[in-house]
Amino acid sequence: MTDTSIARRGGGSASAPAGRPRRSHRPPKKASGLNPKYIPYVLLVPGILVIGALLLYPMFQAFVISFQKVGIPQIRDVNPRPAEWLGWENYTKVFENDIFWSSLRNTLGFAAVTVSLTLIVGTAVGVLLNQLSKRMSTFLIIGIMFAWAVPPVAQGVIWRWLFDAEAGIINWALNLLPDFLSNALFGRADWTGQPWTNEAFSILLILVVTVLWSSFPFVAVSVLAGLKGIPGELYEAARVDGSGSWRTFWKITFPLLKPVFAVLTILSIIWDFKVFPQLYTLMNGPTNREAFNLSMFSYAEAFRSPPKMGSGAAIAVILTIILLVVTSFYIRQMVKSEDVQ
């Protein structure tokens, strides 16, 4: 870190490198007359501009808007009015709204259930992949790759079709259950016409299945990659010492894969907290308020008439804060291992 002179000198002398002693292994400078000190900054300019203009500054703006009143009069094309400063009013109103609390509950509950199911199923499939022969594991990887590759909107469409009230395959399968069993479990025998996408709870149920189906492959393949990195001698030693497979998993596999699991957990949390396209498709837009998660609630507040952008922004800010708190541990961890290399 000797390049502290940049701030003082600015870019002024960048093109005048003559006479300065050169270190021997530096490339000749004739092609680009740029002092090597400034090269990384020049390379970073487009990236920093994009991230600043499209992510950081809008985030700041969202924060500001969450304290303002921004509706039709402010966003209309002709003669827009300036935004009105409200202070904390958007937030207090949001906190008084029942839909906010049900959205928050849905977001947290959905994430908790889906993240744990995804990790369990994904790890099980990853361990399975590791035990299979080469041909069999390639076959299975290609199969689960299909589930992973389906675009989120198409996922929503597919599962909506599988759970269709009249012609859905799920209702057909439930009708196959023997009547007494179906009656004992669910209190009904005939499932034809069961409108799964009408009620909040069953919408969220379908959402869990959809997201689980599409996201366990990533966990499985990552766990497989991690398992491949564990030396086989460890397992041999465990077997010689008489350790069973369950014990081997918890004593050897799990501790060694901990970093992988940490990352997978965090990534899954980030993804499942803001699941939007699947939910939007499943309920055909922001229709059923009880099934909203925070993303959908923010979208509905800001873009359904009458648009309340301020309150939508407040919800988005709350969601961001929750996400940052949940993931701050991970970021700290990454930064610690990061800044040396």
Binding site: I51, A62, L294, S295, A302, A316, T320, I331, D339
Partner: peptide
């Protein structure tokens, strides 16, 4: 690098309103 990590946590919904405007 830290900024790169942190901005990935920002949900698209937070950017939606300002970017729309």
């Amino acid at each position: 690098l830290i900024a790169l990590l942190v901005v990935q946590m920002i949900p698209a919904e937070a950017l939606l309103i300002p970017l729309f405007l």
